[in-house]
């Protein structure tokens, strides 16, 4: 007999919501999280678009509340449990942890999320943690009264650029196009902020620095001109890549590395659902990640009842 009815891989908003629903359905469930629960929402300074919090809420507080709500219904959670591989083909699913523990279950919800994309330019790896950052809330305070850059034009990039003006004297937003992709309210905040400047139609081609870290960026404009921007730090906020290293690529359908699901969050494998930033979708918000987690858990209930 399998150890669990359901194993949830990942403890971000999708996994925690799936856990809440599964716990309330009294499914014998364990949620596996490689660190502590929360996911990428913990990297977010402030969340103004998750309903129910009219004043907004910090990413950290929202993560804690989601965890507390699942815990209230006795969801079993294993922290520090990094999944390294899995076999999802048969009716009994096998999940292998980094310490070689093998857990089995009848159903699995994949919610391992995603992580920040990299620029992939010279200097990025060399200066990671020495001026190159992927998390504004983590690293903003290190850049008090300095000049820094943010790369990207989406919601995360522009919102965090505004946040970073709390610390930095000047924030240059480097964007490859001539307009932003971020939501209008977020754009308005950025345009109204005197500390924010824009380098339009530009990409970073090199990150330069010395022993103390980043000193400048080489920018390439779409007209072919190169220029140098002196900065102490650069925040790379250009989307995410899936945490799919532990997923069985030979079993699961994963177009471009993201797991394919139907509207009920079912993958191509019976008893295997997926939710959150790991799935093949366009919109990556806390709200739809959580919603997908709920659907995935209810689909598991359906599957376990033999209704699928």
């Amino acid at each position: 007999m399998a150890d669990y009815q359901l194993i949830i891989v990942g403890g971000g908003p999708a996994g925690l919501t799936a856990g809440l629903y599964a716990a309330r359905a009294r499914l014998k469930t364990v949620l596996l999280e490689k660190g502590a629960p929360g996911g990428q929402v913990m990297n977010t300074d402030w969340i103004d678009n998750y309903p129910g919090f009219p004043e907004g809420i910090s990413g950290f507080d929202l993560a804690e509340k989601m965890f507390a709500q699942a815990a209230r219904f006795d969801l079993e959670t294993r922290k520090n449990s990094e999944v390294v591989s899995m076999d999802l083909q048969g009716s009994e699913k096998k999940i292998v942890l980094a310490d070689n523990t093998v857990l089995t279950s009848q159903a699995v919800i994949l919610a391992p999320g995603a992580r920040p994309n990299k620029l992939d330019v010279p200097g990025e790896t060399e200066f990671a943690g020495k001026g190159v950052s992927y998390c504004a809330t983590c690293d903003g305070p290190f850049f008090l009264k300095t000049e820094i850059a943010v790369v990207g034009g989406g919601n995360t990039a522009i919102q965090e650029a505004v946040y970073l003006t709390k610390f930095a004297d000047k924030v240059t937003v480097i964007h490859r196009r001539d307009e932003l992709r971020a939501t209008k309210v977020v754009q308005e905040m950025a345009f109204a902020n005197p500390k924010i400047e824009f380098a339009w139609n530009s990409t970073v081609s090199r990150i330069e620095g010395g022993a103390q870290g980043v000193e400048s960026l080489t920018l390439l404009n779409s007209d072919g001109r190169e220029s140098k921007l002196p900065v102490h730090g650069v925040f790379v906020l250009i989307g995410t890549i899936p945490n799919n290293e532990m997923l069985p690529a030979d079993q699961l359908e994963m177009p471009e590395g993201f797991v394919k699901t139907d509207l009920e969050m079912r993958t191509n494998l019976p008893g295997v659902m997926a939710a959150g930033d790991i799935i093949n979708k366009r919109i990556r918000q806390v709200i739809n990640g959580a919603g997908e987690g709920a659907v995935a858990a209810m689909s598991v209930e359906h599957y376990l009842a033999g209704l699928d």
Binding site: G35, A36, G38, M42, G59, F60, A63, N80, T137, C138
Partner: peptide, 17 residues
């Protein structure tokens, strides 16, 4: 680490272990 850093809290229990 610092108290205002979410990922620091995520890795905290790993370091404790």
């Amino acid at each position: 680490w610092a108290p205002w850093c979410g990922p620091c809290k995520a890795i905290g229990p790993v370091v404790e272990e």
